[in-house]
Design a protein around this nucleic acid. Structure first.
Lengths: 132, 132
DNA sequence: TATAATTCCTCTAGTCCCTAGAGGTTCAAG
DNA sequence: CTTGAACCTCTAGGGACTAGAGGAATTATA
């Protein structure tokens, strides 16, 4: 049995966040001590790992609850959710990569010079690109 | 002069969001009509483009305000902000890529089969990877 | 030009996912 | 058995929007 602090350090999810997840119905402590403190089993720990992982993947709390309740009995459904989400993640990567390129340009290509303001570089993709 | 709706469609920033930005002190309509409707100049349009762009890059509203007020007169400062942010963006890309790989694994490697539950795949990186 | 449809206004409140703080109780190490 | 860390509940705040109510202005159509 683990205390909330223990599963917190083991999963990297902060203590108040775990309590928040409990409130949201994602997780529940199997037991409480005499003094009302949460005690989690190995199962709870794994469930929290799952939640954390899924959050990292960008799934909403609703989606996760869905996965945790409906999905276990419905393989195809959870499968579908994963697949659906893949598209979104790829989109985000693509956008971020564009932005990365832009930041590199802002940082490097205008180094020290005054002609190309960072501000306008931010505002307009095509400005620095050919200029120098 | 553009109406709020016009700069909205031109920049892709929703009308209420523009008003929100105004409230946050990022942008202001140069004029108002007799009937109190906002009218933006070309400058306003560009400023909003900039804001949108910067938000896409993940800059906070505070950072953007900083860029828009302090930075224009201080090239080095805005430069520094951009550089500083590059690290964060790269981090995010790296994380998302790991997540993408994982989603692909979840989606593909367990396709149709029942042995490897999406749930446990979500919960544990290393589970599906070698299993089948 | 009248009227209808659309866009705009302000304001308040709600959403999502936490995070912080107050004020107090329980647990585990020494 | 004491002390200090970890725990409890509860309320409120924060960032970046988003939605809705209730009404006024603008634009397009007849």
């Amino acid at each position: 049995m683990f205390s909330i602090g223990q599963i917190s350090t083991r999963t990297g999810v902060k203590v108040p966040t775990i309590r928040y997840y409990e409130q949201m119905g994602l997780i529940a402590a199997e037991e409480r001590t005499e003094g009302n403190q949460r005690r989690f089993s190995q199962d709870g720990l794994e469930r929290l790992h799952f939640i954390r992982h899924a959050r990292d993947l960008g799934l909403s709390i609703d989606m996760i609850r869905h996965l945790l309740t409906i999905a276990p009995s419905n393989h195809a459904e959870s499968h579908r959710i994963a697949a659906e989400h893949l598209g979104e993640v790829r989109d985000r990567i693509a956008r971020l990569k564009r932005l990365e390129a832009e930041l590199v340009r802002i940082k490097d290509s205008c180094d020290g010079k005054d002609e190309c303001s960072v501000l306008s570089a931010f505002g307009d993709h095509s400005q620095c690109a050919s200029g120098h």
